[in-house]
Design a protein around this nucleic acid. Structure first.
Lengths: 225, 225
DNA sequence: TATTTTAAATAGTATTACTATTATAAACTA
DNA sequence: TAGTTTATAATAGTAATACTATTTAAAATA
């Protein structure tokens, strides 16, 4: 018997908490699978409702629109990552070690986490790579930010930036560097798979995640020391 | 009397060359203004057609769909930037100087270029910040890449990577570093304006573009030396 | 048991993205 | 120059999408 956890999600991310009902959990589980497969543009509430034997209108009771659902999923992912970093850097003092652990967790190939049986983290991590920028690259970014929809990403950014400040309190750009690196971690994987002339990381070679780790670690360490 | 130029655009970016007709040039000019104002999601061919006193169907004779139009505009921007870098680094030998010029051109606040009277480069540069990632973060990225739609960005990336190779031929990640920096240049501006806790760059202070230049230059120089 | 509250389904509408067909104008040819 | 071809753009659609008002069903409470 394994315990399961629930990540605390901001109330403004949903109309009705999808973690509290059967239908809600189905919406989350199936939307991760479908957005991964057909992409966010191709994904609709109608298609989703069909797959889970419900109706479009019922899905709308949980999420205002499909954009908000995406924001929810991406926020869940960042919360999950931050939880893992907290868990794995607990009791570690050396900030260099903490940085390495954070970068390792950030870049490692994700696999299903039994603590959260409703979410396929492998599929979700692919969604983060392809779709996460779309959560804030909109005209409503300021409203969405105001009600805290991007707290997950900002909190993670602060966490890693704080490690960097421990290593070098003189460095002028801890947050800028970390936000750049968090983005680059996903971008470089996307490039290596689809636009390979933009990166030396090679998706055809083994251990793409480790290549990514080495690249990002080089950038960060050189920048701050 | 000032000469005007035409940037050479890949044939697959359009159905009919918009630079060759009056209606085509109107489509380009007005779509830059409108996407900047209402965002790519809110932008439709119907609204555009109304503004230029034409019809939706006529716009479709030039571009297969609104996504292709966006790809065209972004490609134009990267071609323009590369043209400016070529022009300004001509006859300069010192690769450090060339790098500085490239980063300066990349980060400087854009203003209308009289060489290209049909395009409002200031508005277009805002579009690049908010919308450019959407050109390739799609399920058709491989098809689009196959027919050369992203050549502009890739060519620019190679150009700057070649400068970095001149400075340090031993550095393992010239393309990965440059693609990261090209993206970060836009992201950091967006963050400073909309998600300020993600960066030390301050949109409220003067010379945001120079702050951005200093940040990116620090990252690049430290990474490669 | 009756009543209130909540949840989900039915049945829509307005808008969007896109297209087949027709009309008009320009260019070429006999 | 009259007739024919070709190019261009407008008309008039359709199918799909995003979203909502209303109704029905189920559950909780008094």
């Amino acid at each position: 018997m394994v315990a399961t956890l629930q990540l605390q999600m901001n109330q403004n991310l949903f109309l009705r908490d999808p973690q509290e009902t059967d239908l809600g959990r189905k919406i989350i589980r199936q939307s991760v699978i479908m957005i991964d497969q057909i992409g966010f543009e191709g994904f609709t509430f109608k298609k989703l409702a069909k797959e889970i034997s419900s109706t479009e209108a019922s899905v709308y009771r949980y999420f205002e629109n499909k954009h908000k659902l995406l924001v929810y999923l991406i926020a869940w992912y960042w919360n999950w990552l931050e939880y893992k970093i907290d868990y794995n850097t607990n009791n570690i003092d050396d900030p260099f070690k903490k940085l390495d652990i954070a970068l390792k967790l950030l870049t490692e190939k994700k696999k299903k986490d039994p603590l959260f049986p409703d979410i396929d983290e492998e599929a979700l991590s692919r969604i983060v790579i392809s779709e996460s920028d779309k959560t804030y690259l909109t005209k409503q970014v300021d409203e969405d930010n105001q009600v805290g929809l991007f707290r997950g990403f900002k909190s993670l950014c602060k966490k890693v930036a704080d490690i960097i400040k421990e290593i070098n309190p003189e460095f002028n750009y801890p947050h800028a560097l970390v936000s750049t690196v968090l983005q680059a971690a996903n971008q470089q994987i996307f490039y290596s798979m689809h636009l390979p002339s933009l990166t030396e990381l090679n998706a055809k070679q083994k251990k793409l995640d480790e290549q990514n780790f080495e690249f990002l670690r080089t950038i960060v360490i050189k920048a701050i020391t």
